[in-house]
Simulated scan of single mutants.
Amino acid sequence: MSTRATHVRQERPAPPNPVRVGFARGAIELRQFFRERDAVVFTFSMPVVLLVLLASIFRDTYPGTQVTAGQVFAAGMIAAGIMSATFITLGIGITQDRDDGTLKRLRGTPTPVTSYFIGKILLVLVVSFAEVAALLAVGAGLFGLPLPADGGKWLVFARVFLLGVVSCALLGIAVSSLPRSAKSASSVIMMPFIGLQFISGVLFNPIKALPSPMVEIGSVFPLKWMAQGFRSVFLPDSMTTQEVAGSWEPGRTALLLTAWCIGGLVLCLVTFRWKNSRQG
């Protein structure tokens, strides 16, 4: 009587779903972020404080319009708030994760790598939305920033917001490889952010009054186009005379922000490091 060996095939567990794990990671990132009170206060207060200071100091009305300098600063500061919530948050946060070994440990777990970045993007998306809501409340409540009644304007707002969040987030991920340690991250990442606010027409208005070389450098980066896009949403068309090109350039704004989304992804793939020099 022959016996037939039976082989029991053990099924391997299905790999975790990257999107589902990414959303779970995003919830963890949000809890960790809001537990750090210092980071929360800095992230939300800096753009608001700058807006209040600038709009309180400069009270002029632009010739031939009813638009005040405070309204122009409010529109541009929305762009700076988004960049603060994305570029700075990710640039410093990922540097800290690399420095304390979080990224190194992540590579040794079954957690999909993409889930880590999905969690980070969800974090900055929520923080950016809250930052913009705060700036709109301050701009409209204190400085009379007019909220558009035209649905088309809000579609432009949504487009600039989403493209701005993605492009600046990717740029923050890429720049996180520059600091040598978490201690130097704030200095390394804050310096270009502050400089860009001046040459992108956020802290200096009108932008066409800037020297041409500065405008050309600022036009390379997404902050200038985000600020211009938001000015096109909240300010009347008569304010196009204060722009370098004499128009809002909606098509060019969308094209260049999209290009930065693609270019930022390429930069991330080329420059991102999972370990610092001390970890080998």
Rank of each mutant, 00 (worst) to 15 (best):
260 W>H: 15
228 Q>Y: 05
184 S>Q: 14
144 G>S: 09
262 I>L: 05
71 Q>Y: 10
181 S>A: 10
164 G>T: 04
79 A>C: 02
112 P>F: 00
154 W>I: 10
241 T>C: 07
182 A>M: 04
15 P>S: 02
134 A>I: 12
165 V>R: 15
58 F>W: 09
220 V>Q: 00
46 M>R: 13
113 V>P: 04
210 L>K: 07
143 F>C: 12
158 A>I: 07
72 V>Y: 06
1 M>T: 13
43 T>W: 05
162 L>I: 12
172 G>F: 04
97 D>N: 09
39 A>I: 11
119 G>S: 01
161 F>Q: 09
194 I>M: 10
63 P>Y: 14
15 P>E: 01
168 C>S: 13
36 E>D: 08
177 S>V: 01
132 V>E: 01
137 A>P: 00
256 L>D: 00
178 L>W: 12
114 T>G: 10
10 Q>C: 12
203 L>N: 06
221 F>Y: 01
101 G>F: 10
113 V>G: 14
118 I>P: 10
23 F>E: 07
44 F>A: 13
197 Q>E: 10
110 P>C: 13
43 T>E: 04
28 I>H: 11
49 V>H: 08
234 F>M: 03
10 Q>V: 15
27 A>E: 11
253 T>R: 00
261 C>A: 11
46 M>D: 09
153 K>I: 05
70 G>W: 14
65 T>A: 02
87 F>Y: 13
44 F>L: 12
142 L>A: 10
256 L>I: 04
163 L>F: 00
19 V>I: 01
249 E>V: 04
122 L>M: 08
206 P>W: 12
24 A>F: 11
256 L>P: 00
185 A>K: 08
214 M>S: 11
166 V>A: 12
151 G>P: 06
110 P>S: 10
22 G>R: 11
275 K>T: 05
264 G>R: 03
255 L>A: 01
157 F>P: 04
215 V>R: 14
161 F>S: 12
18 P>A: 01
201 G>R: 00
136 L>F: 09
111 T>H: 11
214 M>Q: 14
185 A>T: 03
192 P>R: 00
51 L>P: 12
